[in-house]
Simulated assay, not measured.
Amino acid sequence: MVNRLIRKARLFIWKKNRAKIDERDRKRLTEKIKTTSIISMNCTGGIISHNLGLQFLSPTVNLYMNAEDFIKFCENLSFYIGIDKFEICTDENVIGDRTYPIAYLGDLTLYLVHYSSVEEAEKKWNERKRRMNWKNIAIFNTDREGMTGELKDRFEKLPYRKVMFVNKPDEKHASCYYLQGFENEDCVGIITDSVGWKGMRPIDQFDYVNFLDGKD
């Protein structure tokens, strides 16, 4: 009972402090940031957009892909974003114990974590992809979901502004950004989860406002 009350109090205070951080960051927004299409491997891009009060200018919101599919997606953005129809996944080997819908985008698998149906996800995908700003793209990636050295090599070759969050320093790959706190894990955890009482999250080790503005 006491622990539950402490957790509730911590979350309440964390949200209050988070709101102040987001308000501060929104004052740093530039026109470049406001017109950036964020391509994200998982929910990170959508959460950042929400925190900054940005419109979703890409369809990769509320879903995730495995590492190999995401790299392939980024290597062939215009092709995959040009696909209008999702195919419902009924393969029990893929579904496993997941309770959210799963769909195929061509030969890629989309895990639709925050959608109630494939139809809903498909509708949102098509709405948001029409807003793509092909002249201003930024990619957020992580070392989760089966990331390998070979996939990191391919990621480095992508012709976009990009960052990959990793659990250990990686001097070989210039786009990798080491987030502290996951060294004893196989990869980073959920980098948008709350930490402590001050409104912080693991991703806040990285200045994503500067990144979206095209700065180092």
Rank of each mutant, 00 (worst) to 15 (best):
N184L: 15
T142F: 08
E171F: 07
S78N: 13
S117D: 07
S37I: 03
K123P: 05
D107R: 09
G189S: 15
K162F: 03
Y104K: 05
S78Q: 12
A67G: 00
K168I: 08
G146E: 09
G181D: 03
I137L: 03
R131V: 01
L5F: 14
I21M: 02
A19M: 11
F73E: 02
E23P: 07
N76L: 10
L110H: 05
Y160W: 13
K152M: 15
V2N: 15
N17P: 10
T35F: 03
L54H: 00
M65E: 00
T44D: 14
R161I: 14
Y111L: 13
D22G: 03
Q205H: 06
G53M: 05
E23G: 09
Q55C: 06
R4V: 10
Y80L: 04
K172A: 07
S78A: 13
Y111H: 04
E75M: 15
L179N: 02
K157M: 13
N42I: 02
Q180H: 14
E156W: 00
K172L: 08
P202N: 07
M41V: 03
E87I: 15
F79N: 12
H50G: 10
C43K: 00
N93W: 07
L105K: 02
I47P: 04
D91Y: 05
N136R: 01
Y64L: 05
N62G: 01
K152I: 13
K15S: 08
K162C: 06
K32L: 12
K85C: 12
V118P: 01
L112T: 09
L29F: 13
G181E: 04
D170G: 12
Y177Q: 11
I95T: 10
N210R: 13
V118S: 01
G53C: 02
D143Y: 04
E31S: 11
S49Y: 01
E119T: 13
V118D: 02
D107K: 12
K15E: 06
N62A: 10
Y80S: 12
V2P: 14
D22P: 11
V94R: 11
F155C: 09
V209T: 07
V195T: 10
D216Y: 08
V61K: 00
E119H: 09
K85N: 13
L112V: 11
A121Q: 09
D213K: 07
R26P: 12
I190D: 15
V166H: 02
I102D: 02
D143G: 05
E183Y: 09
K152S: 12
I95P: 06
F79C: 13
A174N: 12
T142K: 02
A19G: 06
S175R: 05
M65R: 03
